[in-house]
Design a protein around this nucleic acid. Structure first.
Lengths: 141, 141
DNA sequence: CAGCATCCTAGTAGATACTG
DNA sequence: CAGTATCTACTAGGATGCTG
């Protein structure tokens, strides 16, 4: 029983911490912008509104499903607006809101760090991997 | 045949774009820091080195597997150092490198935006969800 | 204390086909 | 043109038990 209680306690702590993280603003923002396609959409729309098809073309690797899903999420979060022009065929434009625009400097700071330091990271990775290869768990004779 | 070729072409474009993204510094950084536990570890170590067990206690929700995995990745990327003191029992300390420290301002800018604007986002979400509820696809009589 | 190995499941991305 | 719907495959992550 003590074991059960301890396990239960751990589960409780974890659940409580998860709940805390769910309300953490920075966590929420990170979850949003770290999405593979979000940063690309934001960047594509930085210079002005675009139609669905243009986004789909510019962001060459995205599937319709993911593009639509990403756009809907960003619209829901108030980061961009979706404007439907009921012509034939229909036309839909996406445009960053001021809130969406305010996010661009944050993205820029991320980009700046990355472009400035990513080489150090890659060097560190290579060193680490070489170190692993040179240090077998059980040295030979 | 034309269909096959078109599908193949799409697949090629997608693969090429994925390869491009894989080399994009900003993308790599985002992938790293967006990891659920990375930001928490970085934050925990901001004020000084900590032992494994302390990290595990401070970051209450993390499993041993994920904490170890996260620490290994960060070590590999040169963002922190791992120091083993071969006492009995063994003691392991983790400390941010200068490179790791240089990342803190970036995290701070993310946090700053989040704390400043997350309420707008939440309001937008509520509005969006209410709008959906009030606009059924097929209006009743 | 600080992990590693194993198993398992739940969410998510992509392919595909269809529609207003 | 701009989506929606459905299915499958993958994998990130948690639980558990064992070790130097």
């Amino acid at each position: 029983m003590a074991t059960r209680t301890a396990a239960q306690h751990r589960a409780d702590v974890r659940a409580a911490y998860d709940a805390y993280l769910a309300t953490c603003p920075a966590r929420q923002l990170l979850d949003r912008i770290s999405d593979k396609w979000v940063s690309l959409v934001l960047n594509a729309l930085a210079d002005g509104p675009l139609r669905y098809r243009d986004l789909n073309r510019i962001i060459a690797g995205v599937s319709q499903k993911m593009l639509t899903q990403t756009l809907r999420t960003l619209e829901r979060d108030g980061l961009l607006t979706r404007t439907v022009t009921p012509s034939v065929p229909v036309r839909v434009d996406y445009r960053l809101t001021p809130l969406g625009h305010s996010l661009l400097p944050v993205m820029a700071s991320i980009k700046a760090w990355a472009e400035c330091h990513i080489e150090e990271v890659q060097t560190a990775r290579m060193d680490y991997d070489r170190g692993l290869a040179a240090e077998p768990p059980v040295p030979g004779p």
